[in-house]
Amino acid sequence: MKKIIRNTTLVIVVVVIFLLLHLTPKIAIRTHVLFMGYPIESFTSDIYEYKFSYKVDKNNFIKFYPNAKAYTLTKPPFEKATESELSNYIVRKSGFLYFADIYGET
């Protein structure tokens, strides 16, 4: 009986942590950067919504990603393998949760 209670409690804790880490776009980006292996950048970088330079870019983005927004980090992590900064992220909304991924050059 104790084993069932312990396992149930563990599952509930994991689910609650998952939900908390995906409640807002900024927290989703910080979680993604943290799990990519850049803990300092995930906590110290500011995040703001990306402003598109051209209307065509914005229209194409909305066409291909209707439930998403682009965000930029002010102090992005530097990836040694590709020798580039990982500054732009796309955040998709699924229900009430947000999921982040690298967007590349915007």
Results as ranks from 00 to 15, higher is better:
residue 13 V to R: 06
residue 39 P to C: 07
residue 99 F to A: 01
residue 97 L to W: 07
residue 78 F to G: 08
residue 35 F to Q: 05
residue 73 L to K: 07
residue 84 S to W: 00
residue 100 A to R: 01
residue 33 V to Y: 06
residue 99 F to W: 06
residue 72 T to A: 14
residue 28 A to T: 05
residue 10 L to W: 01
residue 82 T to E: 06
residue 67 N to M: 11
residue 24 T to W: 01
residue 38 Y to R: 03
residue 22 H to Y: 07
residue 94 S to C: 08
residue 85 E to G: 05
residue 87 S to D: 14
residue 76 P to R: 12
residue 14 V to G: 02
residue 60 N to R: 08
residue 13 V to Y: 02
residue 86 L to N: 13
residue 6 R to W: 05
residue 37 G to C: 06
residue 73 L to Y: 04
residue 30 R to A: 01
residue 100 A to C: 02
residue 46 D to A: 06
residue 12 I to F: 08
residue 58 K to S: 11
residue 57 D to E: 15
residue 6 R to C: 11
residue 69 K to L: 00
residue 92 R to A: 07
residue 38 Y to L: 01
residue 44 T to C: 11
residue 68 A to Y: 05
residue 71 Y to I: 03
residue 64 F to H: 15
residue 80 K to F: 10
residue 84 S to P: 00
residue 93 K to M: 10
residue 76 P to E: 14
residue 98 Y to E: 01
residue 58 K to D: 13
residue 73 L to I: 05
residue 59 N to C: 01
residue 83 E to Q: 15
residue 24 T to K: 02
residue 61 F to D: 04
residue 73 L to Q: 08
residue 38 Y to P: 00
residue 39 P to K: 08
residue 35 F to N: 07
residue 76 P to G: 07
residue 12 I to N: 07
residue 58 K to M: 05
residue 19 L to R: 03
residue 95 G to Y: 02
residue 86 L to Y: 11
residue 5 I to K: 06
